[in-house]
Computed example of a mutant assay.
Amino acid sequence: MKTEDKILSALEEVIDPEVGVNIVDLGLIYDVTVNEMGKARIEMTLTVPECPLADQIVDNVKRVSAQTPGVKEVEVQLVWEPKWTPARMNDQAREEIRSRQTLMT
């Protein structure tokens, strides 16, 4: 398995606290690259630019990614284009959100 794929798998542990779903399933991760020196670069977005928990999410992304074998350094780049929309979520994220809404009613 490529290091980029291992990072993506590890990032499934990072939950967006406001939504309660992992950031990979939400479609917040746009790109993951790792160079030959072990520096990982993660391009991601948030559901809204003014997310009050942005620092917490980015810190969790860095922490989890840094634990991946072969990764020596992690850089997270927050981007706002293309803008995140619910269409970026996968079916699993949609189902989790639906289940949470059902439990709340």
Rank of each mutant, 00 (worst) to 15 (best):
K83I: 07
V58K: 09
S9K: 12
D25A: 04
L46I: 12
I29S: 02
S99G: 13
E13Y: 02
Q56N: 12
D91N: 09
E43K: 15
V74N: 06
L26Q: 01
Q92E: 12
E12G: 03
Q101D: 14
T102M: 13
T3D: 02
L26H: 05
K83C: 15
E4P: 04
D91S: 11
V24Q: 01
M104L: 06
K72H: 07
I7W: 00
K62R: 08
L53Y: 13
K39G: 07
V21M: 09
I7V: 09
V61R: 01
N22P: 06
T3S: 03
R94T: 04
Q56V: 11
T85V: 09
S99T: 14
T47Q: 08
M37R: 15
V24R: 02
W84T: 07
T33R: 13
V21P: 06
V32H: 02
A93P: 10
P52L: 14
D5L: 04
K62N: 13
E75G: 02
A93E: 07
I29Q: 02
V48H: 09
R88A: 14
K62H: 08
V58H: 09
V34G: 01
L103V: 07
K62V: 12
L11N: 00
E73T: 10
Y30I: 10
S9E: 05
Y30V: 04
R94G: 06
E13W: 05
E43I: 05
T85P: 05
M37V: 15
K83E: 13
T105I: 11
N60V: 00
I97K: 04
E13H: 02
V19D: 08
A54D: 03
L53G: 03
K72T: 14
Q77W: 01
N35S: 14
L8M: 13
I57R: 01
L103R: 12
V64S: 00
E75F: 03
R88T: 03
P49Y: 10
N60K: 07
E50C: 11
A40R: 03
D5T: 01
M44A: 06
E4N: 07
A54E: 07
Q56Y: 10
P49R: 15
L103A: 05
V24G: 02
L11Y: 01
T68S: 01
T85Q: 08
L78W: 04
I23N: 01
E95D: 15
A93G: 15
I23G: 00
D59A: 07
V64A: 00
N35K: 14
M37F: 12
K62W: 02
L103I: 02
S9P: 07
E96R: 13
E73C: 03
Q67G: 07
R41G: 01
E50T: 13
R63L: 01
M89Q: 15
T33Y: 08
L46P: 08
S9H: 11
V76T: 11
E12T: 03
I29Y: 04
V34F: 03
E73V: 10
E73I: 07
V64Y: 00
K72L: 14
